[in-house]
């Protein structure tokens, strides 16, 4: 079994006195793909934001490769370079074209060689089918194209862990597939990922493990087949029922 890459321990997050995450603990091993599901407002997006220390936490800890990730700490930028994150939407920089969006952080943060990163970026763009859009601006791209660029932008930092926060939730149905295919491809390469999603069939196909969160707590932590076929808790059964329709006539 591969070594533990990410260790989340007793994580507590409160907003204005109400507890959003209430003692979350789990480990992620290298190469594992974790899918986090739960009804909206259950705290799953907040969990990703806390792992990347975009939010201060009120208790517990997050460790990546044995080193703590702490909001406001000195080496936070260094830790974040190892964590790639893709958001629901609007996160490409609108004042830069695709290639500049991708190159900004590798050049300014990691001070890498421009032609080398550019070659890598073009390679990745080609892999997601966007090599001809390198000079386009975000507003000239469709939602699905934007999200693929955002994924490439994260990959170019050579992260050891990728976080996906409902990356297809704001997309038209026909664009969802192209983004999910890219993510499946990444899983096939053995990348370590934590994915928050509402696409249940995709979750089942990509996950090594499913975390079901309800009321700020992990209620189920199991393999996808068990979760989707035989969930233990009533809350998980109720949740999965939302996705089933019966004929009304």
């Amino acid at each position: 079994m591969a070594e533990v890459l990410l260790k989340v321990k007793d994580l507590v997050k409160q907003f204005d006195g109400s507890t959003v995450l209430d003692g979350i603990s789990f480990d992620v091993r290298r190469g594992e793909v974790i899918v986090v599901v739960g009804s909206s407002g259950c705290g799953k997006s907040t969990l990703l934001r806390c792992i990347n220390a975009l939010e201060p936490i009120q208790g517990g800890s997050v460790e990546l490769g044995g080193e703590p990730v702490v909001h406001g700490s000195k080496n936070l930028a260094k830790m974040r370079q190892q964590i790639g994150m893709v958001f629901q939407s609007y996160d490409l920089f609108p004042h830069m074209n695709v290639i500049d969006n991708i190159l900004l952080a590798p050049l300014k943060v990691q001070k890498r060689n421009k032609s080398e990163v550019r070659a890598e970026a073009m390679e990745l763009l080609k892999r997601v089918g966007l090599e001809d859009r390198a000079e386009s601006y975000p507003r000239q791209l469709s939602g699905g194209q934007k999200q693929r660029v955002a994924i490439v932008r994260a990959l170019c930092m050579h992260p050891v862990l990728l976080l996906f926060d409902e990356v297809t939730a704001a997309l038209d149905p026909e664009m969802v597939r192209e983004v999910l295919d890219v993510m499946l491809d990444l899983a096939g390469q053995g990348r370590t990922m934590i994915i928050v999603t509402h696409e249940m069939q995709f979750a089942r196909a990509i996950a090594d493990r499913v975390l079901f969160i309800d009321n700020g707590k992990i209620v189920e932590d199991t393999d996808p087949d068990t979760f989707f076929e035989n969930p233990k808790s009533d809350r998980a059964k109720q949740f999965l029922n939302i996705f089933n329709f019966e004929r009304s006539k």
């Binding site: 990347n52 975009l54 930028a77 974040r80 964590i83 790639g84 994150m85 490409l92 300014k108 990691q110």
Partner: peptide, 9 residues
Amino acid sequence: ESALSLGMQ
């Protein structure tokens, strides 16, 4: 936030 999550100061 996305700039920060790319490791920028």
